[in-house]
Structures are given as structure tokens and as C-alpha cells.
Design a protein around this nucleic acid. Sequence first.
DNA 1: TCTGGGGTCCTAGGACCC
DNA 2: TCTGGGGTCCTAGGACCC
Length: 417
Amino acid sequence: MIALIDCNNFYASCERVFRPDLEKKPIVVLSNNDGCVIARSNEAKKLGVKMGEPAFKKKDFFVKNNIHTFSTNFILYGDMSKRVMSILKQNSKEIDIYSIDEAFVDCYNENLNKYAIHLRNKVKKWTGIPVSIGIAKTKVLAKIANHIAKKHRKSGVFILDNQEIIKKALKFTPIEDVWGIGYRYAQILKEYGVNTAYDLTCIEESWIKNKLSIVVLRITQELKGINCFQIDSKNIAKKKICTSRSFGQPIKDYNTLKEAVSTFAVRCCEKLRKQKTCASEIKIFIYTNPFNPRHKQYYATKNIKLDRATNDNQIIVKEVIKGLKMIYKKEYIYKKAGVIVSKIIKEDQLQLSLFDQITNREKYSKISKIIDQLNNSMGKDKLRIATQGFDRNWRMKQEQLSPCYTTRIEEILTVKV
DNA sequence: TCTGGGGTCCTAGGACCC
DNA sequence: TCTGGGGTCCTAGGACCC
């Protein structure tokens, strides 16, 4: 059987662990630049706060209803996630970490219910994070079980282990709530009278493949209990890495933009080195604010192919700046920029180039390693490339940022006795 | 004034090969 | 009147996820 462990309202729960005064109170967490709502506590959901709503439109509503708002604190959420996952790791043979707040684990216990309740209590006691657990034969069914556990079970646990219960659960699940069925597929299916997960299992498979896709066919088979998505415990390297930001304030000036994209490029390199890979293609993009109808709009991207894959800060920053120069136009006001690296290969499987122009790659790579070591021990960007700049005029707005309780010694919680 | 940031997989069609 | 049959690789775009 496969268990899906999913943290409840994860970001909101992380904030609440260190703010017990907010227990049972409505909380929302905002996206970067305090833009949109990206997480809500149950209390906030009950008050009708929607996912993705722009925060500025809801300001008065938040005040009126005593809804506590937080800026995103990804350092905190990332660290809390690590803690939760490490507990799950200790309690399973295989773990497939699907996102920051959920993981599939294999389970072979005789008493599944007892196992799940034990695991749930342990995570809550050790980290303060409440989780829901759904158990079933396939991943898609485990998702459904988890959904039911979260919404309708006080215990936070639900197991789909016999045909009768599975059938009932499938009839109870609207088609758009099935994992992998998004807005488009749901629209098409509803046109043909497929309204629940159960309806989908009653349809001719060849029709599904022809009319929709092989992906939907696999989902259907998973609903029938046939495994199509395996538990994948190998930590597979990313195939694409993106670092992008909306700016705290609009940017006109080329130099500021250069500082921003240089920093994004360095972030991409750090992520590449962390997973011991190199990239041979870089994409840079810049664009204006699409929500501002008074300004002229511009969206530009530049693709750069490298002769040889690399993860070196200096080489990639140089290329990114070259690209920026080609697409930058001074008459626009920019709101967002980003760098994407792709064509990713393992560090130790580098293909050499006959026409390599860069002669001192070894030296570069040594420098990168030292920069990583220093920045890991002394703090992010302590040592940086000059083009990254110092002013960071582009940095994001985070007016309600909580402390990094678990990762920064000076921000650790103080308890007065 | 103010609207996030990261990913994956699949397919059709173009360009090419013999 | 008649114009083959078999492949591969790459990319953009669409669908989905958190």
C-alpha cells in the first residue's frame, strides 16, 4: 500500500508553531512582494478568503476580521519541511518527496490505521505540524484518501482498503478533484457526463486515450487500482532550474536590472552545484507589469547555448549579461526578470568542446567551490561577483516577515519563565 | 500604489537521415 | 495514369502539479 502524508495548510501551520497565540485564529500567508494569498488556515478559509487573491484588494477585510497576515518565509518553511520529511524517512523503507509539504511512502504494516495514527502523532509532537494521511493501493487513490482524511476525518487518517469503500469514495469525489485532472480536462469530461471519479472508471479506455491523453488513461487505471505511477525514492536531479522575481518596485535603469539578473544567474549556479550538475543552455527573460494598462508592455527572452556545460558563476553571469544587453530597451519599465538554465547533465559526465574558448575552467571551478564554502558558513552572498551589486533596489517587499526561528541563531525563540 | 515562484510530462510538427 | 517506406531528434506549446 502507498501512504500519502500531506501537511495541513503547511505555510500557515509553520507560522503558527512559533506563534501559539494564533491557535484557532485566522492566518494567511502572502506570496513574494506580499502580493497574493498563497496559504490560509482553516479559519481563514471559513471566512471566505480565496487562494490567489491579491492582498491589496483584501486589506480592509483582513483588518475587519482580525486575519493575521504573514509575508512568505521560505527559509522557515524549507527547514520545517526537512524536519517533517526526516521523520517520515525514519518510518518507511521508501519515501518519494513530492513537494515541500507532501510525500508518498510505502507501507507494509499489518495494522495500517495504527501505523498512520502513530506517525501522525509523532510528526505533530516533534515538529508541531499537523498532517493528514491517506492510504491506498495507488498514488491517485492515496490522494483521494488523503483528501477525505483532511476534510472529513477527525483522526486525520483515511484508508481505502476494500472495493466497497473505494467505490463509495470514487462516487463521492468530483472529477475536478482527481489528481491530474485540471480545469481543461474536467470541462471536456463533464461535457460527456463524467462528473465523478467513479464515472471515469466506467468509460471505455480507448476513448479516454483518443479524446484526452495517455496521461488521463493512466489516472483512470490508477483509480481502478492498477499502478502506473511508481514510488520514486531516488533523488533525481532537476532538468530545468529557474530563478525569477517580481521586483519590489518597478525598474527602468539598466544597471539595476543587470544586478538583479546577475544575482538570479548566481542562484541558478548554486542550485546546479548543489545537485552536482551543469547546464548548457540559459534563458533570460524580462518583462513589464501586465497589470498596469497605462504603461507600454514588453516581454522579451533570450536563449543562449553554451559550447560546454557549466555551473560556474562567472561564466554564466557573463553570458546572462550579454543576453540582457541584447533584449534591454530603455523606454520600458520592468517588473519582473528571471534566469532559467536547462540541458542539464551530471558534473562528472561533461562533454568537452573542440572549440572551447575558456582556458582556465579548473581555476573557475575551484573559485566557485570556495565561494560556496564561504557563503555557506558566513551567510548568503557574503562573497559575490561585483555585478550583483549592493543596493538591491529590486529586492522584494516583505513587510510582515516572521523570524527564521529554526535557522538563525539571533532569531531563535525566547521563552520567559 | 499594490497581482508569486517553482516544476513535470506529452505531443505534433518540422527538419533531417537512409 | 503513375510519384515509397522507414526512421530519429528537437522544439514549442499545452496540459498538469505544488
